[in-house]
């Protein structure tokens, strides 16, 4: 069985079949990209995986376990982290606190333990320090040091997207879902991000599902590309194969050229 797979996944909103009988396998530690025109159902697949939506039919398996029916927080505890297309950060918290929130499932301090955080040697303080060190490494990795203590709401768009990546990484996920991470970034930021996504796979050992509109980025870093349109699969293959597929050229790339 594949490391991560979705099988015959379907969901409709009213009469609209947003995701229609979609299946694919993702191997451990690969970068698996999903492409398709606007409204084709890419984000909906992520929402189904995260447990935000529940499918009408189909299954989602990771390491042999079906994730369908689990609430989003349970899915997170299984080792799946994600970023959002329309940034969902904690705007009135600092970058540090946003990333520390990524450590939530790894921390044990309860309400009483927290209340009694008196002194450096209290269990709560020791746990805080330990996890802050970890988060600091992610801050260094994504070069967020200069905004470490700033409120996320005041950051530029590109930085905020990065903070989301950092927060997802802080979960120490097995699988990371990235929904258009490069949207709104300038070329330089995109180049950095492309390298970091590679590092996240290599150094952190994360399996990555990536939704992107930037074809250069997709073709450069993906192991497999899944193309879809209007909730249905068009094709699945290596970047080179998918790029040549006539329907992809028509449905997706064609539209890119026009717009």
């Amino acid at each position: 069985m594949a490391y991560f797979s979705i099988e015959n996944l379907s969901i409709s909103f009213g009469g609209l079949k947003a995701v229609n009988n979609i299946s694919f396998n993702v191997e451990k530690n690969e970068i698996f990209s999903i492409i398709g025109p606007n409204g084709s159902g890419k984000t909906t697949i992520f929402n189904l995986i995260s447990g935000i939506y529940h499918p009408d039919a189909g299954a989602i398996h990771m390491e042999g376990e079906n994730l369908v029916g689990k609430s989003p927080d349970r899915v997170a505890r299984k080792g799946i982290a994600r970023t959002f297309q329309n940034i969902e950060l904690f705007a009135n918290a600092t970058v540090m606190d946003n990333l520390m929130l990524g450590r939530h499932i790894h921390m044990k301090t309860g309400i009483f333990g927290g209340a009694f955080m008196f002194g450096k040697r209290s269990p709560a303080a020791r746990e805080e320090v330990k996890h802050r060190e970890r988060v600091e490494r992610i801050i260094d990795f994504l070069e967020l040091q200069s905004v470490r203590d700033q409120f996320v709401g005041s950051l530029a768009y590109g930085k905020r997207k990065l903070v989301e990546v950092g927060r997802a990484l802080a979960l120490e996920p097995k699988v990371m879902l990235m929904d258009e991470p490069s949207a709104g970034m300038n070329t330089e930021e995109k180049d950095d991000l492309t390298i970091w996504i590679g590092d996240i796979r290599e150094d952190y050992g994360v399996t990555i599902l990536l939704i992107e509109h930037d074809m250069n980025m997709i073709m450069g870093i993906s192991d497999h590309v899944f193309a879809m349109n209007q909730g249905e699969k068009i094709t699945l293959g290596t970047p080179a194969e998918v790029q040549k597929h006539p329907e992809v050229v028509k449905a997706y790339l064609g539209e890119e050229v026009i717009s």
């Binding site: 609430s71 505890r77 969902e88 009135n92 520390m100 499932i105 927290g114 979960l171």
Partner: peptide, 30 residues
């Protein structure tokens, strides 16, 4: 107690729920 609670796990989770309950859930906050 309150100052400490707000600086630790539970306090951060509270703020997370306020700012974005959807993001709070997908990082594992029940």
């Amino acid at each position: 107690f309150a100052v400490n609670i707000l600086k630790t796990k539970a306090g951060r989770a509270f703020v997370a729920i306020r700012d974005s309950d959807i993001a709070a859930e997908v990082i594992g906050i029940n």
